[in-house]
Computed example of a mutant assay.
Amino acid sequence: MPTLDLFADPVELTSALIDIESPSHHETAIADAVYEALSAIEGIELIRHNNTVIARTHFGRDQRVILAGHVDTVPLAGNTPHRLHDGILYGCGSVDMKSGLACYLGAFARWATSRAAAHDMTLIAYEAEEVSSEYNGLHHLERDYPELLQGDIALLGEPSGAIVEAGCQGSIRVIVSARGTRAHSARSWLGHNAAHDLAGVLSRVAAYQPRSVEIAGCEYREGLNVVGLSGFVATNTIPDEAQLIINFRFAPDRSVEEAKAHLVEALALEDDLDMEWDDIAPAAMPGLDHPVAARLLEAVGGDYRAKFGWTDVARFSTLGIPAVNFGPGDPGFAHKKDEQCPVEQIRRVADTLHTYLAAR
């Protein structure tokens, strides 16, 4: 079993985590290593649920901070083991999100050992974030052991450029379908072109004017886009079936029901079209007005911005727990073959966490 030193330099710990290959559904080795490393810390509660590892302190502090990060990556692309060059750490998971996980593991280990933390802490290293929600380790905890997710604030180590990215957009994906009659394109009048029936909704989506909204000093931008089209039979055939896949990204001032109602109004579907709700994920409010969040903002020098895209902060938000994204690296490099993270940002996040968690 690979051995992890949780007290090592965070860049070294990130490198060690990268070298434990852990694409989704293959997280056993990394979960074993994380569990073994945490088991050396005396006086903590340590739990393993499948390939999700939870560690908790019980110092009796007034507030509890959750430090959460996923252990899985997207499929490998010949980008392990790690490589360090000119201050940049390369490798699968380097930015999404083994660097953030390393910072959180190191911070938890340091302050759980010293017992001098300002807050009680819960560390959650969870499986299957990169795949369908039904496999997500946080989803399993929310369903089976919701008490383990309780806290005053949750920090997720998703890449955020080493500043706080607050809240997140919600996302709704729908499939709009049309049905016609197949015919030879030379005798098109004998058929009915399903693809043409989608022209109206396609035009309305293209003409849609998304809004921007400011919440707690964060600007969230919405978007309505066609992300998939299908309807091909053959180059000489009128298609009898056609589909559009449409994605609506909405700001956190909309509830799921409000976002659904707005989407239905915006699409204004003709009666002969069918719509299927394919995926729905709620948004998360920034949560920056909580006193524990204020201390984090102080530790990062007051820098924060809105989070574009969906992250697991939304799971905590639905439980009434303010949550933010805080991790090293540019999310634009996530899932890429040349995935990378600046070592300066890894050390900066680690130092900020130590400042934030230290008792005053």
Score class of each variant (00 low, 15 high):
1 M>K: 13
11 V>W: 05
21 E>W: 06
22 S>E: 09
23 P>V: 08
24 S>E: 06
28 T>G: 04
32 D>W: 10
38 L>Q: 09
40 A>K: 07
45 E>F: 08
46 L>A: 05
47 I>P: 02
47 I>Q: 04
55 A>N: 00
60 G>F: 01
60 G>K: 00
62 D>M: 05
63 Q>D: 13
68 A>Q: 01
73 T>I: 02
73 T>D: 03
75 P>F: 03
83 R>S: 06
84 L>R: 05
84 L>K: 06
85 H>E: 13
85 H>Q: 09
95 V>I: 14
103 C>A: 14
104 Y>N: 00
105 L>N: 00
116 A>D: 04
120 D>W: 04
123 L>Q: 06
126 Y>N: 09
126 Y>W: 09
130 E>A: 09
131 V>K: 05
136 N>W: 00
136 N>E: 02
138 L>N: 03
138 L>K: 00
139 H>N: 03
143 R>V: 10
146 P>C: 04
148 L>N: 01
153 I>F: 12
154 A>K: 08
157 G>R: 04
157 G>H: 02
161 G>V: 08
168 C>D: 06
169 Q>W: 04
173 R>I: 14
174 V>Y: 02
174 V>D: 03
178 A>D: 00
179 R>L: 11
181 T>H: 08
181 T>F: 06
186 A>K: 15
189 W>L: 12
191 G>Y: 00
194 A>N: 05
199 A>W: 05
202 L>G: 00
202 L>K: 01
209 Q>L: 15
214 E>W: 01
216 A>F: 07
218 C>P: 09
221 R>E: 12
221 R>K: 15
228 G>T: 05
232 F>K: 12
233 V>G: 12
234 A>G: 15
235 T>Y: 01
247 N>Q: 08
252 P>L: 09
254 R>H: 14
261 A>W: 11
263 L>V: 11
264 V>H: 08
268 A>R: 10
275 M>K: 11
275 M>C: 15
276 E>V: 15
279 D>F: 01
287 G>N: 02
287 G>M: 01
290 H>F: 14
297 L>W: 07
301 G>A: 10
305 R>S: 15
305 R>L: 14
312 D>V: 14
320 G>M: 10
322 P>Y: 02
322 P>E: 11
343 V>R: 03
346 I>D: 07
346 I>T: 14
348 R>L: 07
350 A>V: 14
351 D>Q: 15
351 D>P: 08
351 D>H: 15
353 L>T: 14
357 L>N: 03
